Amino acid sequence: MAEGLNRFLGDSPLRVIVKLVVVSVIVGFVMTFFGWTPYEIFDGVRYFLLDLWHSGFDALGAVGDYLVIGAVVVIPVFLLIRLVNFRR
């Protein structure tokens, strides 16, 4: 069971807890420095989604363009990396 837990967490539970504490302190410091609160971030995401809904999803047209342009580069690179790693 311990091996499965380590595989799921990516490391031993104690090391994962220490890493999470360190990252939490750093993120908390940065958020305090910029004056951000978790509520403001949640509110920003909520307002973004509401604006997206009220705009009639016009903004998704630009996202679709970005998706196609990016996919032209990303998918061949992904396939190339998978082929190179498959031969090892």
Rank of each mutant, 00 (worst) to 15 (best):
V68W: 12
S12M: 04
R88N: 09
L20R: 10
V63D: 04
P76F: 11
R88M: 01
G4P: 00
F78K: 14
V27E: 01
F29I: 14
I81L: 15
T32S: 14
V72Y: 06
S24Y: 06
L80R: 12
Y47Q: 14
R15W: 03
V74K: 07
N85V: 03
S24V: 05
T37P: 09
Y66I: 02
D51H: 09
G28S: 05
L80G: 08
I41F: 08
T37K: 09
I26T: 07
F29H: 01
L50V: 14
L67E: 08
V18F: 11
V21S: 04
F8Y: 09
F29N: 05
F57E: 00
G35W: 11
R82Y: 12
I26M: 11
S12G: 06
D65Y: 06
G4D: 13
I69M: 07
V25F: 07
I69D: 08
F78M: 14
W36C: 02
M31N: 10
R82E: 10
R7T: 05
F86Q: 03
L20E: 10
L60V: 07
V25L: 12
F33C: 01
V84H: 07
W36A: 11
D51E: 10
M31A: 10
I81S: 06
V21D: 02
R87A: 00
G56A: 09
K19T: 12
R87V: 01
I75R: 08
D58T: 02
A62S: 12
G70F: 13
D11F: 07
L60T: 03
V27N: 00
L83M: 05
W53K: 12
V22D: 05
L52Q: 13
P38C: 15
F78R: 14
V74M: 13
I17R: 04
I69E: 13
S12N: 13
V16N: 00
F57Q: 00
E3V: 10
F33D: 00
R88I: 01
D43R: 15
L5D: 02
S24N: 06
G61C: 04
D51V: 04
